[in-house]
Design a protein around this nucleic acid. Sequence first.
DNA 1: TTGTAAGCGTTATCAC
DNA 2: GTGATAACGCTTACAA
Lengths: 336, 336
Amino acid sequence: MIKSYPRIRDVAQAAGVSTATVSRALSCPELVSAETRALVLKAVEATGYRINHAARNLRRRRTGGIVVLVPNLANPFFSRILSGITSVMAPVGYNVLIADTKQGEHIRDYLHHNRADGLIVLDAKLPEDVLMAGASARYEPPIVFACEWVENDNRPRVVIDNMHGAALAVDHLVELGHHRIGHLMGPPDNILTVTRAEGFRQAMKRYGLTIRPDWMLKGDFSLASGAEAAHRWLALEDRPSAIFCSSDAMACGFIGELHKRGIRVPEEVSVVGFDDIDIAAHFVPALTTIAQPRDLIGQTAAKTLLAVMQGQGGEQLQKQVLEVELIRRQSTARIA
Amino acid sequence: MIKSYPRIRDVAQAAGVSTATVSRALSCPELVSAETRALVLKAVEATGYRINHAARNLRRRRTGGIVVLVPNLANPFFSRILSGITSVMAPVGYNVLIADTKQGEHIRDYLHHNRADGLIVLDAKLPEDVLMAGASARYEPPIVFACEWVENDNRPRVVIDNMHGAALAVDHLVELGHHRIGHLMGPPDNILTVTRAEGFRQAMKRYGLTIRPDWMLKGDFSLASGAEAAHRWLALEDRPSAIFCSSDAMACGFIGELHKRGIRVPEEVSVVGFDDIDIAAHFVPALTTIAQPRDLIGQTAAKTLLAVMQGQGGEQLQKQVLEVELIRRQSTARIA
DNA sequence: TTGTAAGCGTTATCAC
DNA sequence: GTGATAACGCTTACAA
């Protein structure tokens, strides 16, 4: 089954030079004469040589790959960030391995230099003990968090301004005349949930609006949990006129279910989402939401990781905050 | 930056056995005595040993990874198939590398045993010449197609019954009294497009219904192209009462745009999608669609690839067809 | 600028 | 059942 491929040795023979020269010609062209370089390239072409990454990585004592811990690959929000990451990593020759933490992969397996040259964490609800820098983490590869993370941890982090995002949502609703505003939250163990809920509370307070506990609905960022929240909203005796959802998926699930029950958005309740996933602009009604620069998050995280892997532990890498933006669409309306 | 990790040698020393024995105890436990095995495992624990995959793969002359060619990672349809693939591959120790062909990665780079032990192709519109088995493909790794592919190619393939899916859609619409039916197609160079359009035509013919060229709208599977198609539908002097879309994303884009123009679905036009992506059940209105078993597609493709990589080129692997199903929801209605 | 040669950490082959 | 040993294909001091 396994065939034999041309090795450096074969190229060297074809070019009439040593293997070392071939190696140099390919990885540091400036170290060999133009003449030899041409010779080598021709021999590579002739033999059909392709580098063996396993051998190179073994020799260089690295893995040639980085791992991305994703909470749920099926969520389009994350796949877009992944695109951003690969667009930076692929050109510099790193494989991007995806570990879907929802699939019960053993996270600890990846926390080792042997397994990956670096790690990007997108999952804000991983058990802290696993990822806490500590004595037990002797062989941990460089990590970049591309999500909210515990505050008392100064490892590099790329985040968006979640507090501000929540504030933008409340500002927008207040501007439309709403003062009875609810919040559909994410899973309680997720830091995004906590931060956005806190941003919501502070903004409400700033306007002197009441934060009603029965209007703080629980969800888990998923479509299904948005639909369930709609049931709880319907069961309320006294309903809010607007609701800020901690994810677009929940907002869509919420609106979809309300529609089935004959409640119209935004006429009977205004809805703001968070993320600006692709479907948001095409939903019925088109979703007013807080847009995150998903590609940029991925690219920034990847560039930061590369910098850290090259040993640049500069101050400016510690915490980068990207801006969010309110996108006004049709799921919110001036109160009647 | 790079530290030194415990190697097999260190474990061997700690356990008082040879490196060969440690290696065997870990990869073929049945070859060593229970006593030694316990000794080795204890030593592994004590030293914190983790295998070095680069070294193993070099020695075993493999890469330890498989590559999946995805047309567009941002499309939730594919991310779900990926989940299915990783759920099979991760437990048996294969890395799953994702190559998003939309990002202009060089496909040829992956067509080499050096790069991947196997390949799963999800992109039905890759240039044929690249993937045609041929003399130039001397070092091509085993390939499994998890999408429609050219008929005159008997490499393993996992497909759904696209013709039947299209027929189910037409059956359903006819049952609801529609006889003026249009079709929103995918990109012309994609085999899925061709097959579903052909299924549509045959079903229409079976019912003796007219296939009107101006009702065959062009799209590219994306949300945006669905929205554009809505404009063309609006511009028609004589409009169909129902439309079968070749993807859910286009169906959502189509409905979303119609809604903005004040056209109501299904009252003024019935819409059937294809895929049953997660949002379909929550869309407004909930989308009637042809469901594909996405997890199963991924799992089946992965299992098939494993079989091929192990040299089992059995007949039963040649072409596996998975069933599709009509999901009746609210985007279709009996004609007035 | 180029060649020589010593590994990188594992596994497979051969003896014992 | 276990141990010694030679690769796997590449990179990088060091020498020339």
